[in-house]
Design a protein around this nucleic acid. Sequence first.
DNA 1: CCCCGTGCCTACTCGCAGGTAAGATTACTG
DNA 2: CAGTAATCTTACCTGCGAGTAGGCACGGGG
Lengths: 228, 228
Amino acid sequence: MHAEQPVRTGRAKRLPRAVRERQITDAAVDVFSRLGFHAASMDEISEVAGISKPMLYAYLGSKEELFATCIRREATRMMAAIADGVETDQPPDVQLWSGLRAFFGFVGGNRPSWQVLHRQASSQGGPFAEELADLRGRAIGLVATLLVRSGEFPDVPRAGDKEAESLAAALVGAGESLADWWLDNPEEPAGVVAARLMNLVWMGFGDLVAGHVWHPPSRRAPGTAEQD
Amino acid sequence: MHAEQPVRTGRAKRLPRAVRERQITDAAVDVFSRLGFHAASMDEISEVAGISKPMLYAYLGSKEELFATCIRREATRMMAAIADGVETDQPPDVQLWSGLRAFFGFVGGNRPSWQVLHRQASSQGGPFAEELADLRGRAIGLVATLLVRSGEFPDVPRAGDKEAESLAAALVGAGESLADWWLDNPEEPAGVVAARLMNLVWMGFGDLVAGHVWHPPSRRAPGTAEQD
DNA sequence: CCCCGTGCCTACTCGCAGGTAAGATTACTG
DNA sequence: CAGTAATCTTACCTGCGAGTAGGCACGGGG
């Protein structure tokens, strides 16, 4: 999968610290995403990184610190990609649409990052769960804010925040789950998957079965929208 | 949390094998749900079960077998609860609604089961993932069938199966995520949470922000529906 | 009353993986 | 070219937890 796994015949070439740290983090994301936190061994990470074990400890600290570093880095990358993709000066539905496209675009282009973020971090009982819950919380908060701005929810007007927050949680979960499904059905382009979720959460099944679909405003049909 | 943790002072009372097996499985679900598969130790499970470690191996086999037994048992219980709750002779929206209510009702009444099913099993690379993927696949298949029966999806008419399957995956994920959120915000009754998800996936945000909500047919307002 | 089998326990073995001590090697600097 | 400091390594310690050997109690049948 990953291209540059040095063959580790004898000694590794001398490199500046910053470069090594990056290599190590790359390798760690790769191994963690394939095996999960516990099943991944520091020996294997060091091997993939093309380096010996004590370097891990010298540069990135303990296994937990290394994992947290991976989570933080990949979370930052993903949030940046999404923030970069959202068109904040557009109406709510277009904002949501652009956010979904950015999200699925990132997942499609960074499978290991997504694996390590979603599957692994969410299930370890340690301080990583915090890290991940923080990211998830920020995402939910963003969506919730977007929802609140879209208008009031008439059925539970007093508890608007809880209402929006729970709906945002459901939406974020739907996105996560659909991303996982997509990994098993990768033949479809990101835009199609994003459009499906957009239609689900914006139109609802009730509209979809009646033939009403949502279209992006710029005359692109959702089924043919291409990525970025 | 769990009531009957024998204090293990000395020897345990002699019991027939079937009863012990059940006790052990209960304890295992409890410990696995709190700590996860790897972090849970057979010593702790035996302690919680009020029994010594060799009994685990004598009765339930290895750690992996024990975990698989837990997954299978809890998955069966959950699917039975949902199947029991769904009103299959009703129109699609009511079927979905009754299914959601049954699901959230089960989660609310069986937190550890849910934890062990959702959080733990999904992240272990072993044969449990299969077990869990099987459950998840059955759930998605059920929802997908329901969707297909509800009508055709007009925007991608040729790929109706994929369309329905991906939407079902999104819906199942939304349910899982909302259930997790609910664990952190347990003050709301199951019916309210279920109604929120029902409104989201049936009406969509587009309708919700316009003030259109979904109501169960029996004149209960969704915000006030009580559980069971 | 004594025997015997099933249920149960104490007390170990053993391998694996996180983490480290101490020394070898290489690039840069004067 | 020699000194120095950062980079990198081999080879080890150590604790933890899965899994097991072998023996102790307790209740039912002769």
